[in-house]
Nucleic acid binder design. Structure first.
Length: 567
RNA sequence: UGGGGCGUAGGCUAACGGUAGGCCCCGGGUUUUUGGUACCCGUAAUUGCAGGUUCGAAUCCUGCCGCCCCAGCCA
């Protein structure tokens, strides 16, 4: 199908079908108006990215609009800090809400007026049961609920009580405004749901103006209605709320959007609930919401993921109603795919092993020109210095070469990427038998990497010149959990036990080629033969570069080695 | 036990009564100055199960089974 690389909602799904049907019948007058309505009580994660790409993507696709709306109806859990982070994340992801940023709290007055209307119509009442009593009266799945003794209060009494609730005459929990629906409904949400509760709490936007706050079910449909939303997309757990959503809007006889539910995203090797993520943060198991191992949007950003890769991922996972767990490998594939196209190639040695090229004159130095994108020289090149002392990756040398080994070993010849051919003559060790240095010779005729006699050299190593290398710190990140589903734990155990304790390995003595000096925060590179790395947006300075490993390159040698070792 | 949803290869997802397609993963190969990329090939689904309707069923019907959600004055 139309598999354009970065096309929001390019593929068909049941929501697209509904919208196209509506467009055909003119149900909404040809309009498509969606919204992304987070509660500002935490940071956005990759699951939210799915919702964002869906709602904003659909609006884009059909020339409609998508509002950014903060569902800030519970002041005790919310904070302005979260509002800011959400705005930053949505816009970083590449979506523009224009002048359509709204807050549920903008509508508090209107919502209150509607509540008064509902009371006047005899469809809502003030209850004065305690929370415990309310729960008991509600019944359970098998037993119908019982009407509250306060259910038949007169409209006048309800109006009076409600206005006194609003005026702050009561303590939290003393009274509750409820819709008068049906205490015997098999749908618990219809058993006289709460509409307004008393909360003497200061709101991050309205301050102390209110001491009663609307409940989600009351607020959400009204917000959608006020904003003239056409398709109100939310996750599956709200399916049971739809009858209530519809009931309120019908009773009020106001503009009535269609709520449509889709399955939330689950990702293997990670947890997605805000609650669990908050646990990780507050228990210091990670370094904040934007720790590069977190599945938050800000975490992925800091890790080096691109917005385009995340959007592409969201497009590829599709939208349906069945519960799903998407393979982390798919996300890793989309980021590799993007970075492969966009990241300049450079060389850095993470675990340096010194090489002295014995037949290279001391005190001399020359340069090789290397392309940032091999095969696409027009995208730029830089000079790489070369001299008698260089460093290669310690792991690229074996004193005893295993089968199929193409890299360095005593007596073996390899190519230094973009430079020349060298042969290992001697291995120098310290008193512990640890290899400290390799003595090699180079073939001056092989400048550029090929020899005139055309002999084949299979191995190519990345390397860096000793005297000009830039010392850097590299943080190697890996998946945060060891198991596909960290939540699958036995009673008495916690998902925390599945944390991968080597998910963050900090290397301090890494050496990078000099062109990397002064690399800007958030710039991304491929360290050839290793992986993709991103300059940390907070900790990296001109004096001390800090790189985060976004993702490794595919490593087919690791597979071969594993196979060899396994036999 | 009541209500609401959902079951298509290892993971996502398409097919809208016409005989199961795509992506990821996995395996093999070609090219290669990244054991990367690209390209080629391949494995793998009696569409949860059992019946029925039909010339024809993943699609319609019936009955089972399994999984998810719901008893906040959270969203």
């Amino acid at each position: 199908m139309n598999e354009t690389n970065d096309n929001p909602q390019s593929r068909s799904n049941f929501i697209v079908e509904i919208i196209e049907q509506d467009l055909k019948t003119g149900k909404w007058g040809g309009r498509v108006a969606t919204r992304f309505p987070p509660e500002p009580n935490g940071y956005l994660h990759i699951g939210h990215a799915k919702a964002i790409c869906l709602s904003f993507g659909l609006a884009q696709k059909y020339g409609g609009t998508c509002n950014l709306r903060f569902d800030d109806t519970n002041p005790t859990k919310e904070d302005a800090e979260y509002v800011e982070s959400i705005k930053e994340d949505v816009s970083w992801l590449g979506f523009d809400w224009g002048d359509r940023m709204f807050f549920a709290s903008d509508y508090f007055k209107t919502m209150h007026e509607y509540a008064v209307k509902l009371i006047e119509d005899g469809k809502a009442y003030v209850d004065s049961l305690s929370a415990e009593e309310t729960a008991a009266y509600r019944g359970d799945y098998n037993r119908p609920g019982k009407n509250s003794p306060h259910r038949d209060r007169s409209v006048e009494e309800n109006l009076d009580l409600f206005s006194r609730m609003k005026n702050g005459e009561f303590e939290d929990g003393e009274h509750l405004l409820r819709a008068k629906i049906d205490m015997t409904s098999p749908n618990m949400n219809m058993r006289d749901p709460a509409i307004y509760r008393i909360r003497h709490a200061s709101h991050h936007r309205t301050g102390d103006e209110w001491c009663i706050y609307p409940m989600y079910d009351w607020a959400h449909g009204l917000e959608d209605s006020i904003e003239q939303i056409t398709h109100s997309l939310c996750t599956l757990e709200f399916e049971n709320h739809r009858p209530l959503y519809d009931w309120f809007l019908e009773q009020l006889d106001v503009y009535h959007p269609q709520q449509i539910e889709f399955a939330r995203l689950n990702l293997s090797y990670t947890v997605m609930s805000k609650r669990k993520l908050l646990d990780l943060v507050s228990d210091d198991l990670v370094n904040g919401w934007d720790d590069p191992r977190m599945p938050t949007i800000s975490g992925f950003r800091r890790r080096g993921y691109t917005a385009a890769a995340i959007r592409n991922f969201c497009d590829r996972i599709g939208v349906a109603k069945r519960d799903n767990t998407v393979d982390l490998a798919l996300l890793e594939h989309t980021i590799r795919e993007d970075l492969n196209e966009t990241s300049p190639r450079v060389m850095a040695v993470l675990d340096p092993l010194k090489i002295v090229i014995e037949n290279y004159p001391e005190g001399e130095q020359e340069e090789f020109e290397a392309p940032y994108f091999p095969g696409q020289e027009e995208r730029g090149t830089r000079a790489i210095p070369f001299s008698r002392e260089i460093f290669v990756e310690r792991d690229d040398f074996r004193e005893e070469a295993p089968r199929k080994w193409r890299r360095l070993a005593p007596g073996k010849e390899v190519r230094l990427r973009y430079a020349c051919l060298i042969t290992c003559n001697e291995v120098i060790k310290d008193e512990n038998g640890e290899v400290t240095e390799l003595r090699c010779t180079w073939d001056p005729e092989s400048r550029g990497g090929t020899s005139p006699d055309g002999r084949k050299v299979r191995g190519t190593l990345h390397w860096v010149n000793a005297s000009t290398a830039v010392m850097t710190e590299v943080r190697q990140y890996d998946r945060l959990f060891n198991v596909i589903n960290p939540l699958a734990v036995e009673d008495g155990h916690s998902f925390v036990e599945h944390i991968n304790h080597s998910s963050c390995e900090i290397l301090t003595g890494c050496l990078a080629e000099p062109s990397l000096a002064g690399a800007k925060p958030e710039s991304r590179f491929q360290f050839e033969r290793i992986g993709y790395f991103c300059v940390d947006r907070y900790d990296s300075t001109d004096d001390k570069l800090v790189f985060n490993r976004t993702i490794t390159l595919r490593d087919s040698w690791a597979k071969i080695e594993k196979k060899l070792g396994g036999k």
